[in-house]
């Protein structure tokens, strides 16, 4: 594995306890130039994860708490008339950062949600006839509370597609819990580690992850997976071609994290559940385990 990433994952593991898989997925998501949706109850460590990730990777971090009165300008920024200069001056919103934590995104109005999701896709802000590029890398971690549905605007499927992965953190295991409880210093908050890298290296790593090889048999496997989600009416919609491309990109990042220059079916299987879970809506309403999808499709 790449030394920087290994170190980063180690450090992150010391902050978010017992969540190696989720940490890996988060880093892979960043490497694949994707955005991450974390669905969980409050107080499980979502903010900690986002902050730690930004800090360890040496990236800027900003946070937006979504509420139903949050306006797009609150996220993107606003032009204010400066009397002294006699011109409009742009005040960048929190979106101008490397890592943006969009907390409880489903509490925001559809209008604000759309504004953010558009920016996530385009990596630029278009306001007042001018286009402003966001810093790179740009990585959004959005959280939503799955249980508390009152007064929320669930993200439409078309917009869920903008998130590469959707993960849940879940409760820590017993040992981690114990260690967590034992942390007394700093009012129970973890001490954030030092940065091990910076934006430039992350960009370079993203570039390298793009060149991980995907052989024809592997692409055939991905195709078979996509095909399986579309056939047989198991889901309202199957995975889209864009989702397929995202799957390949994510698999590459996963393989790169593993230190390989080629993708294995195992890589695809590792990222598939997180990638497909928010994109596939079961036709009958009964949830379908993504592991069952993997089990049903033989590796060619």
């Amino acid at each position: 594995m790449n030394g920087t990433l290994k170190k980063a994952l180690e450090l992150l593991g010391g902050v978010v306890l017992g969540k190696e898989m989720q940490l890996r997925l988060s880093v892979a998501c960043l490497l694949a130039r994707g955005h991450l949706l974390i669905e969980d109850i409050p107080g499980i460590g979502k903010t900690t994860l986002a902050k730690a990730l930004a800090t360890v990777l040496g990236l800027d971090f900003k946070r937006v708490q979504f509420t139903n009165d949050l306006l797009p300008a609150d996220v993107l920024g606003v032009s204010v008339f400066d009397a002294a200069e006699a011109s409009f001056v742009f005040h960048p919103g929190p979106v101008f950062t490397n890592v943006l934590l969009a907390d409880e995104i489903n509490r925001g109005t559809p209008r604000t949600q759309s504004a953010l999701l558009e920016v996530m896709e385009e990596q630029q802000v278009s306001l007042d006839n001018s286009t402003r590029l966001l810093p790179r890398p740009f990585f959004v971690l959005a959280t939503q509370n799955a249980l508390d549905q009152a007064g929320t605007y669930p993200l439409p499927e078309s917009q869920l597609d903008r998130f590469l992965f959707r993960i849940s953190l879940g409760y820590p295991d017993l040992d981690s819990e114990l260690e967590l409880l034992g942390r007394s210093q700093n009012a129970g908050r973890p001490v954030l580690p030092e940065a091990v890298t910076g934006a430039d290296e992350i960009l370079d790593l993203q570039e390298r992850a793009d060149h991980v090889r995907t052989s024809t048999p592997l692409l055939r496997y991905v195709r078979d997976l996509l095909e399986w989600t579309r056939a047989g009416g198991r889901f309202v919609n199957g995975l889209s071609p864009r989702a397929g491309q995202a799957l390949v990109r994510a698999s590459r990042a996963w393989a790169f994290l593993d230190g390989r220059d080629y993708v294995l079916p195992e890589d695809v299987q590792a990222v598939f559940p997180s990638l497909a879970v928010h994109r596939l809506r079961p036709a009958g309403g009964t949830p379908v385990d993504m592991g069952a999808v993997l089990d049903a499709v033989p590796i060619p």
């Binding site: 294995l264 079916p265 195992e266 993997l294």
Partner: peptide, 9 residues
């Protein structure tokens, strides 16, 4: 081998 089992697994 399960049909859906990768070689490394």
């Amino acid at each position: 081998r399960r049909p859906s089992e990768g070689p490394v697994d």
